[in-house]
Design a protein around this nucleic acid. Structure first.
Length: 295
DNA sequence: CGCCAGGTGCTGA
DNA sequence: TCAGCACATGGC
């Protein structure tokens, strides 16, 4: 059991903001994997409690995964450039971009195209149960994420049987590319955003939006600004006259928000979705109801 | 039944 | 460069 100091951090906002797909909330805690170790995580004030039976997990792993080493105040100040993003920051302050495994991140966001989050989660979970290794913990049955080598050898038909649809051939070809070492994640982590994005775009099933997600969530390219339907809607705020095409939105956002545009994107995205969801009932997620508004 | 979901690849001006 | 379309699947 690890107790990790976590100031200026909101676990629930972070794990329900759509950047990850495998965390599950149950009985007051989040169940998932950090660095391949099955964990149960909960937050009380400024302390994170991480339970695990895997002795390999260190406090440093947790700090790194949740980006607790990032000084949030100056970062948020740098993107706090208009009333809309200011509201989003105020409502969800403490939301952080996590550091995901780039391969897992790539697969998840290839699955995300033309899809909804609930179904993406199901697809990923079936993929792990079928081709990952079992990892149980406190009655929580988890699975490791299948390697690129494993997925490169799975027949496309088997992927389709998991409900992956037209993404099956994309995943298969991308897995082969990664297994052959033609997408060197660790090298990309050290290079700049433009080169990284170019490399990601060579994968099948990866366009501008997915490449930006992997660059942002998997490789910490904080300038990356993924533009999906939700962000497109939120960005109409800045486009009173011209029609906000995705290319124009992307260009504008990187100029308007600067080096940490990706963080602005995540706050805007999460805020837009929680506002929409506030009128529905969603008992699966904590703190996602009507919050911070009086009427 | 129609519409929507964290889009991408392909085609034709 | 850019609009128009097909693409699997499930929830509402």
């Amino acid at each position: 059991m690890l107790h990790v100091p976590a100031t200026d951090f909101q676990l629930a906002d972070t794990l329900t903001s759509g950047q990850t797909f495998r965390w599950r909330f149950k009985d007051g805690a989040f169940y998932g994997l950090i660095c391949g170790c099955a964990v149960r995580v909960r937050q009380a004030d400024s302390t994170l409690t991480v339970e695990t039976v895997d002795s390999r997990l260190t406090e440093q792993d947790v700090i790194r995964y949740f980006s607790l080493d990032v000084d949030l105040a100056p970062l948020l100040a740098s993107i706090d450039n208009d009333a809309q993003v200011h509201e989003a920051i105020t409502r969800h302050r403490g939301l952080r971009i996590v550091r995901q495994d780039p391969w897992e991140c790539l697969v998840c966001f290839i699955c995300s195209s033309f899809n909804n989050i609930v179904r993406i989660q199901g697809m990923i979970e079936r993929l792990c149960q079928e081709f990952g290794s079992p990892l149980s913990f406190n009655g929580f049955r988890g699975c490791s994420f299948p390697s690129a080598e494993t997925m490169a050898h799975v027949p496309e038909r088997r992927l389709r049987e998991l409900g992956l649809g037209f993404r099956a051939p994309y995943l298969k070809r991308t897995a082969r590319l990664v297994a052959e070492g033609k997408l060197p994640f660790e090298a990309l982590r050290r290079t700049d955003y433009v080169v990284t994005k170019q490399a990601l775009l060579r994968c099948d099933g990866v366009g501008d939006k997915v490449a930006d997600c992997v660059a942002l969530f998997g490789l910490q390219k904080y300038e990356a600004f993924p533009v999906d339907v939700w962000i497109e809607r939120a960005m109409r705020y800045y486009f009173r006259t011209r029609r906000p095409t995705r290319a124009r939105v992307h260009d504008f956002a990187r100029r308007h928000f600067g080096r940490y545009a990706g963080w602005a994107q995540q706050y805007l995205y999460h805020d837009a979705r929680t506002l929409r969801r506030a009128v529905r009932i969603d008992a699966n997620l904590p703190g996602q109801g009507v919050r911070g508004r009086s009427s």
